[in-house]
């Protein structure tokens, strides 16, 4: 009996340092995120405009938006956006980080150049890109120069989403560059050295040393990037307003429209469907990272 208590105490005591370090963050996050989240979760089961009575409607908000064609289109658009940005973005980030990890003249300048778009908010970057993508914009000047047709990228439903994705990648991949760069710096130098001693070429060193060392960073980049991609809103709001003909309406754009009309029930329901999908995606990503 006494031994069990002692054993339990030992086990609990083992958790003590971790719990103490984690507690302050958990308290703040509970107040600032989890309490509001529980509130909005409750909103999602009701007919509520923030003012006036709250009427419980059960799952009605969820079923209503799920059959809304605009919501379905928003999911399809968001998925396409996520796939484009999450394949091209991290790849560009990794390639630039590897290039910038060399001792070359002007390295500080180049690093700043790739990072500069990240320092501006998405709203600013989207504002900048709009005139560039315009039919009379600079991009079309370049295309015409190399013998291609001019195209009004943002006014064509079949290219608008790609154009918005491109601007988002341009703005965001510097984030990935910086994260990868920081991670590359922490790869043990002797690990790389011994691989070189073993006669491994650059490509082999990359596969055998660099990539495995980057695994935690890759998980970070893909989890955070995927969440960010599914939250796409600012760039759509500024560049296309969800159009033309709904071709760039994303899930968050859809729910913000509802939110602006103070339709808190449907807005929250859409948000929690998004959270549910992202939890599943993130859990899969964590699982892959662990098993590989």
């Amino acid at each position: 009996m006494a031994e069990t208590r002692l054993g339990r105490w030992r086990r609990t005591r083992r958790y003590l340092p971790g719990a103490v370090l984690l507690a302050p963050a958990l308290v703040v996050m509970t107040l600032m995120f989890f309490v509001p989240m529980i509130t909005s979760l409750i909103y999602s089961f009701g007919d509520y405009s923030g003012i006036g009575p709250f009427t419980w409607v059960g799952l009605d908000n969820y079923t209503e938006i799920l059959v809304d064609p605009r919501f379905q289109q928003a999911w399809a658009n968001t998925a396409v956006f996520a796939v484009i940005t999450m394949t091209v973005g991290p790849l560009l980030g990794l390639v630039t980080a590897l290039m910038l990890n060399n001792r070359i003249p002007g390295r500080t300048f180049f690093r700043a150049v790739f990072f500069v778009p990240v320092t501006a908010s998405l709203v600013v970057v989207s504002t900048l890109w709009k005139p560039l993508l315009n039919e009379r914009g600079l991009l079309n000047d370049v295309l015409q120069l190399i013998g291609l047709e001019r195209h009004d990228w943002l006014s064509d439903p079949s290219t608008a989403l790609v154009a918005v994705s491109a601007a988002s990648i341009w703005q965001g991949f510097g984030f990935e560059t910086v994260v990868f760069l920081a991670a590359l710096q922490t790869i043990p130098a002797d690990l790389m050295e011994s691989a070189r001693m073993d006669g491994a070429g650059p490509w082999q060193r990359f596969l055998a040393v660099t990539l495995p060392s980057l695994r935690p960073t890759l998980l970070f980049v893909f989890v955070v990037g995927m969440i960010g991609a599914f939250q796409a809103f600012d760039q759509v709001y500024v560049m296309t307003g969800g159009g033309p003909v709904g071709s760039t309406t994303t899930v968050v754009f859809y729910l913000v429209e509802r939110f602006r009309s103070l339709d808190l029930g449907h807005a929250s329901a859409a948000a929690y469907l998004l959270v549910a999908v992202l939890v599943v995606i993130s859990a899969i990503q964590f699982r892959i990272a662990r098993t590989r």
Binding site: Y15, M37, S40, L264, V279
Partner: peptide
């Protein structure tokens, strides 16, 4: 704490914490 110290369910805690990133800000604003 979440990376190196013994804690029950560290991975689950991480994903629960990540939900705060998944929820669109607008929904929490009110």
């Amino acid at each position: 704490a979440l990376a190196k110290l013994p804690l029950p369910g560290r991975g689950v805690i991480m994903i629960v914490l990540l939900t705060t990133l998944m929820i669109p800000m607008q929904v929490n604003i009110i």
